[in-house]
């Protein structure tokens, strides 16, 4: 697992840049983001559905075209909903940024390898998620595995016209567990809706 950033440090970069964007987080990113941010426009997608956070964020971006929407996804989550990449580029919201924190494992279930990495593959190859995104129609695709470069470039990447795909290679956190729900989901959803659009 060389040439990978710390998940927490890579999220700290985003926390430092955060202004009034919507942030949708799930799984490991939700667990860590909740420690860094308590913003009314944080949508902590916990409990979640498998791989659907990027689709949830797409809907938000389409409903609120003047508001930037950032979705923090894992590689395992992305692999569960790869078709969403095609849907995102079909709708092409220019306010949408998908950040994939790729730790190469299903971390919250005990760090089993995903089907996209050599440990699970007969041919020992790795699936290039950035290339998949390009093939699915993303025109702005960025890859980072070095925290210094991510710190230097993150602000400009987030300013790009969407849809933007950002592939961040991060190290898994040994023993990490799934995120705990920050509270009952229905009132959190309504509070988020109120914060985003005044309940309309």
């Amino acid at each position: 697992m060389s040439n990978r950033m710390s998940l927490v440090e890579s999220l700290e970069v985003l926390a430092g840049l955060r202004r009034d964007e919507v942030v949708v987080s799930s799984m490991g990113t939700a667990r860590e983001w909740m420690k860094l941010s308590q913003h009314p426009l944080d949508f902590v997608h916990v409990p979640s559905s498998m791989g659907q956070s990027c689709s949830l964020g797409l809907g938000m971006a389409l409903a609120q075209p003047n508001r930037k929407v950032l979705v923090y996804n894992g590689d395992g989550s992305l692999l569960m909903n790869l078709g969403a990449l095609v849907t995102i580029t079909a709708e092409a919201p220019d306010n949408f940024v998908l950040l994939v924190f790729d730790n190469a494992v299903y971390e919250v279930t005990g760090a089993q390898a995903t089907a996209g990495v050599p440990r699970s593959r007969r041919d020992l190859t790795v699936i290039d998620l950035a290339a998949v995104a390009r093939s699915c129609g993303f025109r702005s695709v960025f890859e980072f595995n070095d925290i210094a470069r991510w710190r230097a470039d993150a602000a400009s990447v987030l300013q790009m016209r969407g849809p933007v795909f950002v592939h961040l290679k991060v190290a898994p956190i040994p023993g990490a567990v799934g995120p705990r729900s920050p509270g009952p989901a229905p009132p959190r959803a309504m509070a988020f809706r109120e914060a985003l659009c005044g309940g309309k």
């Binding site: 949508f43 689709s55 949830l56 964020g57 797409l58 809907g59 938000m60 971006a61 389409l62 409903a63 609120q64 959803a189 988020f192 809706r193 985003l196 659009c197 005044g198 309940g199 309309k200």
Partner: peptide, 8 residues
């Protein structure tokens, strides 16, 4: 769901 949360 995202559309609804965004007011649509």
């Amino acid at each position: 769901a995202g559309l609804y949360l965004g007011g649509a």
